[in-house]
Amino acid sequence: MPQRPAVHLAVPVDDLAAARSFYGQVLGLAEGRSTDHWVDWDFADHQLVTHLVRVAPQPAGTSLVGQHAVPIPHYGLLLDEWRFHQFAERLRSAGVRFDIEPHRRFPGEPGEQWTMFFRDPAGNALEFKSFRDESMVFAR
């Protein structure tokens, strides 16, 4: 039986204990296999691996999207709207500082979406978003 494609994403972190706390406790991801220098996470049925490195990653810069300077690089997930808002509240309750607060982007356009940006303890930027109409994710 064919399986749906899954993404494997590896990100650098400079403190594995901080990564465990953030990804496991704050984001609520289930921990998978691990060693003393990497941890697998269940990222909505995709594999996210935090790899210990000596120096925290440095952002490449930003890219203007709408009215906001979006951090580059970044990664994240598409959520349904209810889950997006529930997740935003979880982050607020945990004291996560947003680079870009949860807000609606491109209202009335095909790509209308809720989006938010924040960083993990190593400085990796994450974006979580929710499209008004999921069939419009790749619409032009």
Rank of each mutant, 00 (worst) to 15 (best):
V11L: 14
V11Q: 05
D15C: 08
D15F: 01
D15T: 09
L16A: 03
A18K: 11
S21P: 00
F22K: 05
F22L: 10
Y23R: 06
Y23Q: 06
Y23L: 01
Y23C: 01
Q25A: 10
Q25D: 15
Q25L: 03
V26M: 03
L27P: 00
L29S: 03
L29C: 00
R33A: 07
R33D: 13
S34C: 08
S34K: 11
S34Q: 14
T35Y: 03
H37G: 02
W38S: 08
V39T: 14
D40G: 05
W41Q: 03
D42F: 05
Q47N: 09
Q47L: 15
Q47T: 15
V49G: 04
T50C: 01
V53P: 03
V53Q: 15
R54T: 14
R54L: 13
A56L: 04
P59A: 11
A60G: 02
A60Q: 14
T62K: 02
T62H: 11
S63K: 13
V65E: 01
G66E: 07
G66W: 00
G66C: 05
Q67R: 13
H68V: 08
H68P: 03
V70T: 12
P71H: 05
P71E: 03
I72V: 15
P73E: 07
H74W: 05
H74G: 00
Y75C: 11
G76V: 06
L77H: 04
L77G: 01
L78A: 12
L79N: 10
L79S: 02
D80N: 13
E81K: 13
E81T: 14
E81Q: 15
F84P: 04
F84Y: 13
H85P: 01
Q86I: 05
F87L: 08
A88D: 03
E89R: 12
E89K: 08
R90D: 12
R92H: 10
R92A: 15
S93Y: 04
S93R: 13
R97V: 14
R97Q: 09
R97K: 12
D99T: 09
D99G: 04
E101P: 04
P102E: 10
P102H: 02
H103K: 08
R104A: 06
R105I: 04
R105G: 12
E109P: 07
E109I: 04
P110M: 11
P110R: 12
P110I: 05
G111N: 12
G111Y: 01
Q113H: 07
